[in-house]
Design a protein around this nucleic acid. Structure first.
Lengths: 118, 118
DNA sequence: ATAACATATGAACATTCAAACAGATGAGGA
DNA sequence: TCCTCATCTGTTTGAATGTTCATATGTTAT
């Protein structure tokens, strides 16, 4: 169940203690995982990238990604919950956009990373 | 199956075309999703954060996270596949570290984001 | 009010995934 | 060689996730 120490050098113990002291809270790690999980899906990655180009209504997203409105809507719900997108209603339509520049930066960093290592 | 356009304004069509033209390839989106998926797990987020503080051997990670060595090893396998960590062998031990500063930056951005919105 | 449309939601199904356990590999010491 | 230790790898099981279909909500126009 719980990990046991390997043959313990003082270096080993020192590192373990130091890292343990600096670890974030469970709550923060849960948020962090949830944030990245929201990016970590083919469909949502495409939605987020599309929105990084321009604000779009649900049906426009469905058209761009060639997917059903329902599928898009379900994913948008998750993205809303993760606070990655915001929306405004205009008549029958609902327009989605990225929540802030942090989200745009994360997408950008991600793209840079995958392009650097082929 | 495939999405249909909503009542089509010229604005709508213009946006759809523009976004479609700028979308990345399927391959790139798959990579992008895979990258973020690797971050998007409670255990892996903790591993990556721990490694952002200091290089650690598998048993040290198991100790820090209070998990079995096996569980850690399985996750490290995924992180290796995603090219997020590198490792060096030293006798019986295997020491893991973040692959590059891109990874560190992504973690940092993520933490900034969750801290900004409470 | 009724119809048509845009979006959201619920339930069912299929797939993916992490944790746990057992066994395998490989390095070092007696 | 035999044994131990650190790590890795299969396999199974239960949970989480994505997609689809059907339906519900809410808006606009007739």
């Amino acid at each position: 169940m719980t990990g046991m120490a390997c043959s313990v050098t003082s270096e080993h113990n020192h590192n373990v203690k130091m890292v343990q002291e600096r670890m974030l809270s469970e709550r923060e790690f849960l948020f962090l995982a949830e944030l990245f999980k929201a990016f970590g899906d083919y469909t949502r990655a495409r939605i987020l990238f599309a929105l990084s180009i321009h604000e779009l209504c649900v049906c426009a997203l469905a058209e761009v990604l060639d997917m059903s409105q329902s599928a898009i809507s379900h994913q948008l719900r998750l993205l809303r919950a993760a606070k990655l997108v915001r929306y405004r209603k205009e008549g029958k339509n609902v327009f989605y956009a990225l929540d802030d520049d942090h989200v745009r930066n994360l997408i950008g960093q991600g793209i840079d990373h995958i392009r650097e290592q082929g």
